[in-house]
Design a protein around this nucleic acid. Structure first.
Length: 254
DNA sequence: ATGTCGGAATTGTTCCGA
């Protein structure tokens, strides 16, 4: 089975690239983030034409312009949950696909350390950990998506550039470690370039071309999943009109 | 260089969030 995660930064703006990418990479199950559309506006028919069932979760009204997540599957899809606990923002969707419980997450950004959104981010991550209380790490499960956390200093291009910023603070990293300590593996992916598997590069200042990136899109897999390969699809970040994130593609056996 | 995007309203430019 091939799964992938991708923060597409608007599924509407990215639709031609998303469809091309699905045809090229042929993933069985895909976790999408930042779809930036309501569930009713999701391109269900377009991905359906390629054989995928979609489970989109989005906001309503003007709120539909932010956040939004989805699971696509061509190997069956049984919905499990469309929100995290009592958090209303569309940042969490979970489904069982051919025996694999896969959850797509778009963890709140946090903005700045003194912003209320930072505390909200930590609360959100704590709630994500709490969803595991009743789960079994020996069963096949993957939590994947844009965590907006770089787990270690090696996961940013220059740690000194991030002093005082979100994404690298100890509480954020501890929140991710709590997921790993429960029984998940932060799946190591082969880099698309260089020696580090960055997944995000700011659009500005040629950061992609300088490979000044961050590894913030993670695939956390339970012991019930055997990974045979994992890599950052850097090609999808190239060219005209890319997302600012690259997909992570993972081949696995259950 | 706070350097670029995407979405939407305050539209044909400006704002917010990332």
């Amino acid at each position: 089975m091939r799964i992938a995660t991708w923060n597409v930064n608007s599924v509407g703006a990215r639709l031609p690239r998303l469809l091309d990418w699905l045809e090229t990479r042929e993933p069985d199950v895909v976790a999408l983030q930042e779809t930036k559309c309501g569930a009713d506006a999701f391109p269900t028919d377009e991905v359906g034409a390629l054989g995928y069932t979609a489970l989109p979760v989005g906001g309503t009204g003007t709120g539909a312009r932010w956040n939004g997540v989805a699971v696509l599957s061509r190997v069956g899809l049984e919905p499990v949950a469309t929100r995290l606990a009592d958090f209303e923002e569309p940042r969490y969707v979970s489904a069982v696909c051919s025996g694999l419980t896969l959850t797509s997450v778009y963890v709140p950004n946090g903005r700045t350390i003194d912003d209320p959104h930072y505390a909200y981010k930590l609360d959100w991550l704590a709630a994500l950990r709490a969803t595991l209380d009743d789960a079994d790490p020996d069963r096949p499960m993957i939590i994947t998506g844009d965590f907006n956390v770089a787990p270690t200093d090696a996961d940013v291009f220059a740690p000194e550039a991030f002093v005082g910023s979100t994404h690298v603070t100890e509480p954020e990293r501890a929140a991710v470690r709590a997921l790993v300590d429960w029984g998940l593996t932060d799946v190591p992916a082969r880099p698309g370039k260089g020696d580090r598997p960055f997944t995000y590069w700011d659009y500005r200042a040629g950061m992609f071309h300088k490979d000044q990136g961050m590894r913030i899109d993670l695939v956390l897999a339970s012991r019930g999943v055997r990974v045979t390969d994992a890599w950052v699809d850097r090609e999808a970040r190239k060219g005209k009109g890319p997302s600012d994130h690259a997909p992570v593609v993972v081949d696995l056996e259950l």
